[in-house]
Write a protein that binds this DNA or RNA. Structure first.
Length: 955
RNA sequence: GCGGGGGUAGCCAAGCCUGGCCAAAGGCGCAGGACUUAGGAUCCUGUCCUCAGCGGUUCGAGGGUUCAAAUCCCUUCCCCCGCACCA
């Protein structure tokens, strides 16, 4: 295995010595690119390098096409990831210890510094920069590195929130959020940063329905308030001890668990007694909305942990209710135990309330029968319920029985009916999680009301409109996102932007109890890369970074002298920072994974539009999809991940870079496959060794030189137009496959002119530099060029020579045709005779081209033109057939594409290549024109020759 | 559901916006050959069917538009992703 690492280090040091990564303002056009900085959540895996690599490769391409490039990097450490990681390290968690060590963490750090959350962040800041980004040869401006937990970054963040407030975009209102009672707010998401259980839970909004029964109110929770017209009875669990709860002037009856949950969402609840479920039986209650008296009946399936522990029964549309009711009617023994008369239960009959396509009067009955469910405890009832809910929601229409809501679609009726009942005091709302969620600390997670939650008002219409308009002017890849981003912007509404609890981040400037949350502090930060350098090297201190300072530096507001006096930063330095901002901003490209499409990118865009002037709004976004693993093999949370440094050692950083750039479109997920990576790695080696061979050629010029030069010009212009669209993949196809193949062909055809080769290598190696910079440097050196290819410029594309390219295409086609004949016939020919088209056929082609130019080409017009030419006419039917076929072909193909066939001297070209063909195919090749008298033509093949397709005879 | 993406030859994957040298790039795999067996080698050739190359049938399925469709339109079947406080 080659020692990639030391080769890579060698060149990285050279780049660094030349300060290639340090971007300074100058006269060139600028290009600023970033990737969305990663969250500090532990070690990254090989998949993460995909997007980062795109950023470096695009930056390098821009460098070699005349741009002054700035590529800054940073990390996002806001949140509780580092806190929980440090806590697990401190607790000596076996899995975490193994994971850290396996990824290369020195064990002694686990015993000491990494027990502290901030040290965890600093540690990974080092890992990301040294082991990932530098290791991959990124030309990032390390001087500007920043992290959301740096004190200077916090100053910037507080300034940003002041600006948001000035723009009227900070609002306060109540909010229902998942929270752990001891740790505070937690994030419920599948990555389970905060959780030990329940990451897939959703927050559901229940409607609490109030059933008056005497002086008390039985409360049921439902997700389907639109079904109230179908209520026929009320279930309570006779074995549960319910609580009587005072809520204002009302007395509610709910399960103790529901009381606990409600108490986090409502003020002034008071438990004033208990009542056994069985004691509620025999009562009746008044159903909300329909004001009908329904019986309270016993049901063992009422779970006190779900909703309020009591259920209103709508058998028509709820499969559970349908089955339970059916069973209870069949077997009266359960009811009898509680003294419920058979007539009471028999009187409970479903009411049809919703009509929906594909279902009869009672959807619940239909689905239960369709699925063959026969028992009340069948687990498939859950699925049945989901199906009916889903279909009901989208297909259902309220029936006539539903009063003023009759005829309304369920989708609409649901909201309206809920609101009507809330307005009349018959309902309330309640939030709950769809499954049990447990915090890392072991406590249960509940939904808690927060009264004074701050939001950023991303729903602001003017802001949304201006952002949307701006997006049309941006370069957004892929085009699907360019089209869709407007819908996303519209959908993106108020966002809770601060939180309480165990959380690392910047204090909210208007109320320091709150910490700015993780999405909200990572939106405007690209502009901060233009300032971070001065804080990093101590030229400015965090205390000096006042509102006036940022106002001046970023917005150009105020007077330098005055601002200087206010914040204590030299006027000249202030002006330098201002000049940095003016020179580098706006950001040209923000590159991020597809997870950013619905949250980060809209927030990034809207913050820029809200705070900065239009000339500083971003110009580009590129979204990249993932590298995925078989059975989550590369996922960092599951263990078994391929550590990045190990992979780099095995395949070489450049092998991986080429793999990322070329394996698939950036806009598709790819499964990590070591064999693929290896094959890219080997391709680079192959190219390197081939370039070594080429460099030693000392021959003289041949007709192949013009061909090669033309091909290279074609390639350079393809590369340039591909990169206009940031299409790294097409660029890589050309640079690593097509150019390689062409040089192989050149070599095979006897090309050996050192001047041409050298000129060509200069272009080729430069073209490979963006994707595989280290190996490009090796090749550059091996080819004898001076300096660093990382500093070289890509030559402009020169002229193409269509005839030169056509001639070689012809030869390859002849070879391929001959091979096919050999394969099909199974003969081993000793002699190959080629016959080019006779002049009269070329004449027909010429006439066709003429007609086409005049726009008069058709089969009859060409035939007529041919028949008026005596030289052609003598060939009779063969001539009219040829004319017809030529006209057909030409009308089918793009105009002018057959011109080279007419203009090229096929006979001369093939004759010149006869020696080559003989050698390659191991036979004697000879070439005739079909016009030639006395040609050797025992198979009478010459008559088949047409322009572009010589006839072949093998013997 | 809402929003979005996708179905291409044994597999992976381009092409689709801007219809036409598209039987459809490239890679992998497979087969044959060369050269060699210090190697995860390299180099040629082939890899839908048919066949002395020029023909035929293909790009989830079915219709349509067009001189011409993998590409545009309609219908239909099947897969995947996001839906929020998680960057």
């Amino acid at each position: 295995m080659p020692d990639y690492e030391s080769i890579e280090r060698k060149w990285q040091v050279r780049w660094s010595d030349r300060k290639l990564n340090e971007s300074e303002r100058d006269e060139r056009p600028k290009f600023m690119i970033i990737f969305a900085y990663p969250g500090v959540t532990g070690y990254l895996h090989v998949g993460h390098m995909r997007g980062y690599t795109y950023a470096d490769a695009i930056g390098r391409y821009k460098r070699m096409t005349g741009y002054n490039v700035l590529f800054p990097v940073g990390t996002h450490a806001t949140g509780n990831g580092a806190i929980s990681l440090a806590a697990r390290i401190a607790a000596g968690d076996k899995d975490i210890m193994d994971y850290m060590v396996r990824n290369g963490c020195p064990p002694e750090k686990l015993e000491g510094e990494l027990r502290d959350p901030l040290n965890v962040v600093w540690f990974f800041n080092g890992v990301y920069q040294e082991e990932y980004w530098k290791r991959f040869g990124f030309l990032a401006d390390w001087r500007r590195f920043t992290c959301t937990l740096y004190p200077d970054y916090s100053k910037f963040m507080q300034w940003q929130f002041r600006k948001l407030n000035e723009a009227g975009l900070l609002i306060q209102k109540p909010y229902f959020a998942p929270a752990c009672l001891s740790c505070g707010p937690v994030a419920v998401d599948p990555s389970e940063t905060d959780l030990s259980k329940g990451g897939n839970a959703e927050t559901q909004e229940f409607t609490l329905l109030k059933f008056r029964s005497g002086d008390e109110i039985l409360v049921a929770a439902t997700l389907r308030p639109e079904t109230v017209y179908g209520q026929v009875c009320f279930w309570v669990n006779p074995e549960v001890e319910y609580l009587k709860v005072r809520n204002g002037g009302e007395t509610w009856i709910v399960s103790p668990q529901a009381y606990e949950k409600l108490s986090h969402q409502k003020d002034g609840l008071e438990s004033i007694g208990a009542v056994k479920g069985s004691d509620l039986l025999g009562r009746t209650c008044i159903a909300p909305m329909i004001h009908r008296e329904i019986p309270v009946l016993p049901a063992a399936f009422c779970d006190p942990d779900v909703g309020t522990g009591m259920v209103t029964s709508v058998p028509s549309d709820a499969p559970d209710d349908w089955m339970s009711l059916t069973k209870l009617k069949e077997d009266h023994s359960y009811m009898e135990r509680y003294g419920i008369a058979k007539e009471t239960i028999d009187a409970v009959v479903p009411i049809s309330i919703i009509s929906m396509k594909g279902y009869g009067d009672f959807p619940a009955q239909d689905i239960v029968e369709r699925m063959g469910i026969e028992e009340a405890d069948d687990p498939r009832l859950e699925e049945a319920k989901k199906q009916v809910y889903k279909d009901g929601y989208h297909l259902g229409v309220m029936k006539d029985i539903c009063g003023e809501f009759a005829g309304m679609r369920v989708e609409e009726a649901k909201e309206r009916m809920k609101q009507a009942m809330i307005d009349s005091g018959e309902a309330d709302v309640f939030f709950d999680l769809s499954e049990e969620v447990v915090c890392r600390c072991g406590c249960k997670v509940v939904i808690k009301r927060i009264d004074d939650q701050w939001f950023i008002d991303y729903g602001n219409e003017d802001l949304t409109q201006r952002t949307s308009d701006h997006c049309r002017t941006m370069t957004i890849n892929p085009v699907e996102y360019y089209n869709n981003v407007h819908a996303v912007l519209k959908w993106f509404r108020e966002r809770a932007c601060v939180r309480l609890g165990n959380w690392l981040g910047t204090k909210f400037p208007f109320d320091e109890r709150w910490i700015i949350e993780a999405i909200s502090d990572s939106t405007l930060y690209p502009v901060y890369y233009l300032i971070s350098m001065y804080a990093n090297d101590g030229r400015i201190e965090p205390e000096q970074m006042t509102e006036a300072f940022f106002d001046y530096a970023i917005l150009g507001k105020g007077d330098a002298e005055k601002v200087s006096g206010e914040c204590g930063i030299d006027t000249s330095l202030l002006n330098e920072i201002r000049a940095e901002v003016l020179y580098w901003y706006p950001l040209d490209m923000n590159l991020g994974g597809k997870e950013h499409m619905t949250v980060h990118f809209p927030a990034f865009l809207k913050n820029h539009v809200a705070i900065l002037p239009p000339e500083m709004w971003p110009k580009g976004i590129t979204v990249n999809w993932y590298i995925t693993g078989k059975k989550s093999k590369i996922s960092k949370s599951k263990g078994g991940a391929q550590p990045i440094p190990g992979a780099a050692k095995k395949f070489g950083a450049d092998g991986m870079r080429l793999y990322y750039a070329h394996i698939a479109s950036p806009f598709a997920d790819v499964e990590w496959d070591e064999d693929n990576v290896m094959s890219y790695s080997q391709r680079i080696d192959r190219i390197a060794s081939f370039i070594g061979d080429l460099s030693s050629y000392r021959g003289s010029a041949t007709e192949m030189d013009a061909w090669l030069v033309s091909r290279m010009n074609t390639h350079v212009s393809t590369i340039r137009s591909a990169m206009e669209r940031y299409d790294l993949r097409q660029m890589a196809t050309v640079a690593y496959f097509e150019i390689f193949n062409d040089l192989k062909w050149y070599q095979r055809r006897g090309g050996e002119n050192p001047e041409t080769i050298s000129e060509c290598l200069r272009t080729w190696i430069t073209a490979m530099m963006p994707v595989t910079p280290h190996m490009a440097e090796e090749m550059w050196e091996a080819a004898g060029f001076d300096g660093l290819v990382s500093e070289a410029q890509l030559p402009e594309a020169g002229e193409r020579s269509v005839p030169a390219e056509y001639g070689e295409d012809l030869i390859r086609e002849v070879m391929s045709d001959a091979q096919q004949i050999i394969k099909v016939t199974g003969i081993e020919p000793k002699r190959m005779v080629l016959y080019t088209a006779p002049s009269w056929k070329i004449g027909i082609l010429g006439k066709a081209l003429e007609l086409q130019e005049k726009g008069e080409l058709s089969i009859p017009s060409l035939t007529k033109a041919c028949m008026s030419d005596p030289d052609i006419k003598v060939h009779g039917k063969a001539a009219s057939d040829m004319a017809r076929k030529t006209a057909e072909d030409m009308m089918r193909l793009p105009a002018g594409s057959m011109r080279p066939m007419f203009e090229s001297d096929e006979r001369a070209h093939l004759a010149a290549a006869a020696g080559f063909l003989s050698k390659e195919m191991g036979l004697e090749a000879e070439v005739y024109s079909s016009d030639e008298e006395g040609r050797y033509d025992p198979g009478d093949k010459a008559r088949m020759a047409v322009p572009g397709r010589p006839a072949i005879y093998l013997e």
